[in-house]
Structures are given as C-alpha cells and as structure tokens.
C-alpha cells in the first residue's frame, strides 16, 4: 500500500511534466511552421453559408449588395471588412490592391460614416469590386467579426470557406487563399 502510494507520488509528477513538455514542444514547433497561432481568432461561421443581409452602398461608389447577390456569384469572392478609422486597414490597402488583380474583393465598411469610408476607399484607388456600408456593425455581428480588418473567402453558392483576422498581403494570399481556390 505504502509502496504503491510512493510509486504514484513519484510517477505522477514525471508523467505530468512530460505531457506538458511534449505539448509545449509541439506548440512551439507548430508556431514556427505557422500551424499553431495562440492569437488566431477562430470564426464559428467557417464552413457555413453566409448570413442574410442587405446593405446600402457608399456615396459615389455604386449600390450596396445583398447576400443573394453574393450567393449568385460564379467565382469565389473575398469579403473584406474595413473601416477608415482602422490603422491596419490603411496598411492593408496595397496588399488588397495586389490581390484584387487575381480575384474579386467585396468590401464592407464597418461602423464608419459613409462619406469617410468612401473617401478612404478612393484615396489611392479602390481594390473593391463592390462596396457596401455596415453603418452600425449589425451585419458584422452576424458574420462573427471581432474587429477590423477581417476577411472571408466565400465560395460560389455562398459558403464561407476561410477566415482571416489579420491585415491581408500577397504572402497570405499565396499561402492561405490561393490553395483553397484550386478546389473550387
């Protein structure tokens, strides 16, 4: 009895420390390869159809769009939430313009005054094929957006197949988005 107790007392710490150690090692090696990111935000809507919405456009940038129009597309669309007050969004613009040469990007101005958002989009040339205004952030809540910029890859038919919570650039496009386009 006493021997068993001692066996447990000596074995449990070693096993516990070993499990934690192996786990930490896996996390670190996955962090280096990019497979594990403790700061990533997982969106529960990935793999699901887009929520329904109808949004007005921005002044001088055409009409807004609805979920029906997005579902009716025959090509995958990258949906990008942005705001004129968001610094990473400013930094993201050149990357978005580069990506827009390969695929259509639809922008949604999140909690932004329409005239500010319109000015922001037009400042150095718009990367967006279409832009809509989510003035009070209601649509963003349905999409599960936690902040801006966030982007979603929407397959034809309206299913969300990828979500990114960082400012996009061509590297992310090549690594994360383009491989997914091949299967569509």
């Amino acid at each position: 009895m006493n021997a068993t107790r001692r066996g447990i007392l000596t074995a449990v710490p070693i096993i516990g420390a070993g499990v934690l150690g192996v786990g930490f090692w896996r996390m670190l090696s996955d962090m280096r390869s990019g497979a594990f990111d403790p700061r990533a935000i997982k969106n529960p809507n990935v793999g699901k159809p887009i929520p329904s919405f109808a949004m007005p456009g921005l002044p001088g940038l055409g009409d807004g769009f609805t979920d029906a129009e997005l579902k009716a597309q025959h090509r995958p669309v990258l949906v990008n939430f942005f705001a004129s007050w968001c610094i990473p969004c400013v930094a993201e613009m050149p990357g978005l313009r580069a990506i827009s040469r390969n695929m259509p990007i639809w922008g949604i101005a999140y909690e932004d005054k329409p005239e500010n958002a319109a000015g922001f989009v037009q400042r150095d040339g718009s990367p967006y094929a279409r832009v809509a205004s989510d003035r009070h952030g209601r649509v963003a809540i349905d999409w599960g957006v936690t902040g801006v910029p966030e982007s979603f890859l929407v397959a034809p038919g309206g299913r969300i197949i990828w979500h990114g919570s960082a400012a996009l650039d061509p590297q992310i496009y090549e690594a994360e988005i383009r491989p997914r386009l091949a299967g569509l």
Binding site: T10, A11, P13, I14, A17, G21, F24, M31, R32
Partner: peptide
Amino acid sequence: PARGVFILALLAIVIGGSLALFAWRA
C-alpha cells in the same frame, strides 16, 4: 519561438532531471 525552444530544453534538463532524481531517490 526559437527562444522558447531553448528555454524548453533548459526546463527539460532542470525539471526533468530533478523529477527523475526524485523518482529514483525519494
């Protein structure tokens, strides 16, 4: 993460070593 790997190795030696000694001698 590169620093993390170094500290993890250090921890493995210090903690693993002392716990192994503990299991052996306790």
